[in-house]
Structure formats: structure tokens, C-alpha cells
Design a protein around this nucleic acid. Structure first.
Lengths: 212, 212
DNA sequence: GATTAATTTAACCAACTGGTTAAATATCGG
DNA sequence: CCGATATTTAACCAGTTGGTTAAATTAATC
């Protein structure tokens, strides 16, 4: 089903991915892809027929990468604290390596052209987006083990968790000018960020032993 | 400095705002604004000279609205628990009334054309984006009062908090198809979401009295 | 009611966009 | 080396885009 693609084709695909991720569907011009890939514009159509096809290939790939990383980052461990810690670790590392990925996915889904909508419909239909249930089940188990507090709707914790991990990467352009210096050592920052998220979500901020 | 604008001008501005919020800079066409506003395309240029100017007016306005709502939602109360609860309440309500606002701001900042960059530079220079410090100061006070745990870098809590509130609105297009039925009663959902966020961040999920 | 200024319109324009095509060039099996 | 196939190019095309303009219409002023 997945026909093999030549190195040239792959090179174009990689460049196109960069441009689409940076500028989105409307902001991306075929000419710019061609220029940055160092090929004639007609080559893009030779290999991919149309902007729609090229985009659809790329969106599908990146959307799956994003959703898969959610799934892959979540691996049940001995206790839920470890599971949570590992998820934050892995998911944050993926975001560090693909900082523009969540913005791309969110933006394209929100602009929601026909291509994107069809893509998502297919993936949902094929059952390829079932991360959440895995998550929720594990939360319920940890709850049953008496490890964590009872949650009425575990899905909320999922939202809180993902939101906490992602926000920094989505809001980067606001945060950077507001906190100059915060990112002088990005790696160190991310490590602290991971710890902070875990502490906030697992222990909360309330002073323990305080019953007010 | 702010010249008074006629009702017609304002009408166009409102429509233009809708279109820009929906489709972003590149996705917005002057013709569509004109059509939806029920005016001749030349009128847009008559009132606003260029797409850049029109956009710049709108971006500035919406970006300030977003940043102000962050600031306005944060009003110190008797105790930090109440402050936090109220912030989540107010900020979430604003998001409910302007669900596309965070996506718009994030998207435009990430595409980061010259207009946006200059806009942000001006606002930062004019000191109009100083919400965060207010926040951090209050956290430190609550810490000093012994109300909450010590935080090495309170700014992380800010990120976790905002991320938790915003994620649902940014990820709406992913969440809706994945959790059909979750939003059958959006208002009820949001109320539960507010409570959940507060619980997660203030108390954490760890079973209390458990010292593992 | 005439004159002036503000508003609105249709027609137009140059630049750009995605896409095509036919010819040129490179590649490769024989 | 030859033919066939795959790749690459420049020129081109029709539709769209932001923007202009001059004339027409309306509103305001006297």
C-alpha cells in the first residue's frame, strides 16, 4: 500500500514538511517549497500531483506522529507516580524535538479544510486514535489500588496533563519576550519544567498537613 | 490618539475580526471580508488603507484582550485557594465566550509575520504585558503565609495553570471527534472542567495520607 | 438649491498562485 | 551505441489577490 519513494521524493517531502509546519496550509506556497528544496516547481507536481496531495501526505504523517507520541509516551509502570513521571518525560522530550508540532496540528485542525477533516475522519474510523481510553483505564486502576484520589471524570486529568506539557510550546512566542533569560539554557529549563508539572499534578500546591 | 470611528467602520472591523480569527492572516481574503460585511471591497481600503493595517488593528485589539483577560481574571482574594478558584472561573468563562481567541493569538504569534512581531515589540516596550509578575508575587506571598508549598520557580505554576485552562479550547477539534457526547451539555462540562483543574492543581491527585 | 465634501461603486491592474505542457536532458537496459 | 523511459526545465496559462482609480452617488454646509 505504501509505495516506496525515491531519495529525491523524500527530500522534497522533508522540505515541504518544514514549510507546511512553519506556515500552515494557506501560508505555504509551492514556489517556496521548490526553492528551498532546490528543484523546479514542476517537480513538485511531477511527484505529488497537487498541493492538496502533498499536504495531505504530510498532515497525515505529522498528525499520526503527534497522536502516536501521546500513546507511546504512556507506558504503565509499577506505580502511577512513575507512569505519570515517565509520560511527562517522554512527551516533553518529543515536544522538545518537535517544538512546532502541536502548533501545526492545532492550527490545521482549527482551520479545518476539507483535507484535514477527511484525514481525521479516516483515522477515527480506522480506530487509530484510541490513546485516551488506555489512559483512562490506567487512571481507574491506580484509583482502585488506592494510589490516587477518586476522579469523577478521568478525562479531565488527561486534559490537564497534556495542556500542562504542551502550553509552553504553544505559547513560546508569547513567553520568550515576556521572560527573557528564562530560556538561556533550554535543556535545563525543560528538566525543571518536567519536575514542576509532576509536582503540580501529583502533589498539588497545597501545603500538606494543612487542613484549611 | 484613538480617533473615533463611525458605525460603518466598526461594522467592517467586527466582520474582519471574525474572518481573521477564523482563518488567520494568510487564510483571510479581503473579498471575503467585504462580502460578509455587505460592502464593496474598495470600502475596506477606503477605511483601512491596506490588509496590513486592518489586520494590525485587529491583532493588537485581540492580543490585548487576551492578555488583559489573564490579568483581569487574577484578583487576590483572602486565601490563595480562592484566588486560584476565581482565576480558573473567570479565565474559563472568557474562553467560553471567545473560544477561538487562544488559537488565533497562538497561531498568529507562531506564524509571526512582521506585523505581529512589531505589535508585540511595541506592547512589551510600553510595559503593557506585565501580568506575570503580579501572579508570581502573589504566589510568593501565599508561600510566605505557609498556605502553599515552596516553589523554586513560580512561573512554572503559571504555565501549568494557563495550559490546563486553555488546552481544551486549543484542542477542541481533536477532542470533539474523540469524545463524542462529552460536550452534549457544554456549560455543564465547563463547570466540571473548572472544578477538575482546581482539584488537580491545588490538591494534586495523590491519595492524601499516603506516604509512598 | 448650489457647492462642497464624504461615501460608494464598477472597472481595472499588476503581481502572484497552483498547475500544465512540450521540449530538453539524463538514465538505463539491450 | 540505441531506443525507451524517467527526470528536469523554461515558458506558459487561467484564476485569484491586494490594491487603485475615476466617476457616480449621497450627505452636509451654506
Amino acid at each position: 500500500m505504501v509505495e516506496p519513494i525515491g531519495p529525491k521524493e523524500e527530500h522534497i517531502l522533508n522540505i515541504a514538511m518544514q514549510v507546511f509546519v512553519e506556515k500552515g496550509w494557506h501560508g505555504t506556497k509551492m514556489q517556496e517549497i521548490a526553492d528551498r528544496a532546490g528543484v523546479n516547481k514542476a517537480m513538485l507536481h511531477y511527484y505529488f500531483r497537487s498541493k492538496e496531495r502533498l499536504y495531505s501526505t504530510i498532515f497525515r504523517q505529522l498528525f499520526m506522529k503527534y497522536m502516536s507520541s501521546l500513546s507511546d509516551s504512556f507506558q504503565p509502570e509499577q506505580d502511577f507516580a512513575s507512569t505519570l513521571k515517565q509520560f511527562i518525560n517522554r512527551f516533553s522530550d518529543m515536544l522538545r524535538d518537535n517544538p512546532q508540532l502541536p502548533m501545526f496540528v492545532a492550527r490545521e485542525l482549527s482551520e479545518g479544510g476539507a483535507i484535514v477533516q477527511q484525514c481525521v475522519r479516516e483515522l477515527v474510523k480506522d480506530g487509530k486514535l484510541q490513546t485516551p481510553q488506555k489512559f483512562i483505564d490506567e487512571i481507574k486502576k491506580a484509583e482502585a489500588r488506592g494510589e490516587i484520589e477518586h476522579m469523577e471524570e478521568p478525562v479531565h486529568f488527561l486534559f490537564t496533563l497534556i495542556g500542562s506539557c504542551i502550553y509552553f510550546f504553544l505559547a513560546g512566542p508569547i513567553i520568550k519576550p515576556l521572560f527573557p533569560g528564562l530560556l538561556s539554557d533550554p535543556d535545563a529549563f525543560l528538566e525543571k519544567r518536567k519536575e514542576a508539572i509532576f509536582k503540580h499534578l501529583y502533589f498539588g500546591i497545597k501545603k500538606r498537613g494543612d487542613n484549611t
